[in-house]
Design a protein around this nucleic acid. Structure first.
Lengths: 249, 249
DNA sequence: CGCAATTTTTTACAAATCGCAAACATCGCG
DNA sequence: CGCGATGTTTGCGATTTGTAAAAAATTGCG
């Protein structure tokens, strides 16, 4: 598979959103490790890189939500990294962490696109508070407000997007065939009502008359396998004996 | 160049951004006046209010982009103003300007919703730089994330600039033919919606009716080869069986 | 205008996917 | 147990998509 590294680890209760990712670009490994630990305790996904060129390369393949950037780096310095990152359209929040406390440095940092600039040493609590404040404002492509998106339907760990014909389960995309999707969509849009096989054949399959076949059942079976937490004990694709099927939740 | 395709013009306005509004809530009138002047020189619209209650009241009638907030105010103190403002759904960026430099104060400020916290005295240039940095991130009803992000679109290591019609991959320019670019642009601008081959033929190729051909598919194949990390398992140019194509991310 | 290089479209075929029916297994209930 | 209703598996034909390669159109240029 393409990407084994994306671990939105089993999220603790309720916290539905995947962890946000932070890149620490800092060559002082002791400091970087300390920051990493603090951030991880807060639930962030943290990556550490210790030189400018490697950092930029990592950034071509990943889109973190925030970058903690030291100015004095081996290879490219922090300013240059930031400049190139922004030039390529990088949109993450950038918090510069520097030993230089001159106003001119700060102004330059902001000018080329930093979102915050703090002078070392800094208290851990203030650092975390600033990170959180930046996270509140940053918008990454992967994180465009779902409210702005089309009609989403959720049940268990499944999300169905009728607009893009997309289904995800635990955040991972699930592949539905066209018929499977149409069928699911029809059930969902029936809002919990019982739908007979006959109705389904007519409305989803466009059959004219009462053809009896196990086609509908097969689709139910396949959908249950793909979407139900326990396909043997369906909680959402409910069979109503002698009547048809019903979508729950 | 018959290239009639460079025609998505229509939408681009002159980019005359409306002046952004800042509220200064600060009881030291000398300081407030100085800040106001500096900000106005930068082109901001500035309002000054000197006590907490009046400030909150002003905020019920106005929606500034940013609030510069002193903590020690007559009437309601700054923390309380901020707390109530956020509780009412206020979304402006808030920059706290305070004489208190204790970490605990800063952390509390951020916790109740500040976006930045600077300790007086502060240099004018740094102040202006921080204001500008906040302005880049703040989203007001007038300014949606789309417009804030410009015409750059990123996915994997690819950056597409619709304005300059350039595409880069891992920082290196990628050559797209006019049709290839128009096609890609149309998919991107469809914002993730599924677009049928038929629609594409009409909107991108300006065909009138249902001509069936593999032209669209051919372009998809070429774009995938140029842009997808693994063309065999496309992650962004998604085919939706029986329906068309969809651009992801 | 003519010619070469590039881009776009069409053709032709290979590969993948899907719908469907039939056969078989299982379940539920009297 | 018996019987009808539901669940699952399997295989094949039809549809849809991917793509190499040829053909056609467009462009650049002397």
């Amino acid at each position: 598979m393409t990407n084994p590294s994306t671990n939105w680890h089993a999220s603790h209760n309720g916290d539905a959103k995947p962890a946000r990712t932070i890149l620490i670009l800092e060559d002082n490994e002791t400091l970087a490790f300390g920051l990493r630990t603090s951030l991880e305790v807060e639930g962030y996904n943290v990556e550490c890189v210790i030189d400018g060129n490697s950092g930029l390369e990592w950034l071509t393949q990943n889109t973190p939500d925030l970058i903690v950037l030291d100015l004095m780096l081996p290879g490219l310095n922090g300013f240059e990294v930031l400049r190139r990152y922004r030039a390529n359209g990088g949109n993450a929040a950038v918090l510069i962490l520097s030993a230089r406390d001159q106003e001119v440095d700060k102004v330059q940092g902001f000018r080329i696109g930093a979102d915050d600039y703090v002078v070392k040493p800094i208290g851990v609590l203030e650092f975390l508070a600033r990170v959180e404040a930046l996270m509140r404002r940053v918008i990454t492509p992967a994180r465009t407000p779902e409210s702005a998106r089309g009609s989403l339907h959720r049940f268990s760990d499944v999300v169905v997007d009728l607009r893009t014909r997309t289904v995800t389960r635990a955040g991972k995309p699930i592949d539905l065939s066209p018929m499977e999707f149409d069928f699911l969509a029809f059930l969902i849009e029936s809002g919990g009502d019982i739908v007979s096989r006959d109705t389904l054949m007519q409305r989803v399959w466009r059959y004219t008359s009462g053809v009896t076949s196990r086609t509908v059942d097969q689709h139910v079976a396949r959908l249950r396998n793909k979407l139900e937490p326990d396909p043997a004990q369906p909680r959402h694709l409910i069979t109503v004996r002698k009547a048809g099927y019903r979508f729950q939740l």
